[in-house]
């Protein structure tokens, strides 16, 4: 598997190059912030019509990860839809694509701030979910322990030989793990931003996604 293996809350986990989290013992794949329906929502609000291929692209990448891992369980960590209307206005082919990805798997939708209610699609809808020692929720909570979350769309930058390399990144410390955004039309928040620097403990690490994911001490503001 192309990823970085690490241990968190005594569990063996793997940060995949794609930005998905893989938990091999449970055959569980976790993705965060898919933001399906983003381009449609923007057009609805009167913004320019962005290329309408984002749902297709996000779901295709998810299909590849599911195929590779043979996952039996999927957790979508919230903000799976850009808003609740977006979950309704999905094209029928996109709904079918989601259904076919769900076939034969347990599927959990965690609520996010963009999609804070139940949606019509199959799967279980939960505000948060505890599985063994791990808690899955959308936004990290103060004092959270063994917590897997998303929301911030973290990214990290390193300067090497005069070049700055920035990638979406997993952030990891002794208490929490924050996943990068998986959706195609998503931006990122630098790990050096106070919102993330203050959240993460001393000694936090960042795992940069990309064709060969790499782990480094989490970049902070000096």
């Amino acid at each position: 598997m192309n990823g970085v293996d690490f241990s968190f809350a005594d569990q063996h986990l793997c940060a995949l190059a794609s930005g998905a989290l893989w938990w091999p013992d449970l055959k569980l794949l976790c993705v965060s912030d898919l933001h399906l329906g983003k381009s449609e929502r923007m057009a609805r609000r009167g913004a320019p019509a962005l290329p309408p291929y984002d749902n297709h692209d996000t779901l295709n990448r998810l299909a590849v990860d599911l195929e590779r891992t043979k996952a039996e369980m999927v957790v979508c960590l919230g903000d799976s839809f850009d808003d609740l209307d977006a979950s309704i206005t999905l094209e029928s082919c996109e709904k079918m694509q989601i259904s076919s990805l769900q076939a034969g798997r347990r599927w959990i939708w965690i609520e996010g701030n963009h999609d804070p209610g139940p949606i019509e699609l199959g799967g279980t809808h939960l505000s948060e979910w505890t599985c063994g020692p791990l808690v899955f929720r959308h936004i990290a909570q103060a004092g959270g322990q063994s917590e897997v979350s998303g929301h911030y769309h973290p990214k990290a930058s390193v300067r090497i030989k005069g070049r700055s390399i920035t990638r979406p990144a997993f952030l990891l410390d002794c208490n929490r793990l924050i996943l990068p955004a998986y959706g195609t039309y998503t931006g990122g928040l630098r790990s050096s931003d106070p919102a993330l620097s203050n959240l993460m403990e001393t000694g936090a690490m960042a795992i940069l996604t990309g064709s060969q994911p790499q782990i480094i001490p989490m970049p902070r503001r000096v």
Partner: peptide, 18 residues
């Protein structure tokens, strides 16, 4: 940088699908 995603993503998407 933060509030939105980069134009590179739009470019890559169009290159791939359109």
């Amino acid at each position: 940088r933060q509030a939105t995603f980069s134009s590179d993503i739009l470019y890559d998407t169009l290159l791939k699908y359109d």
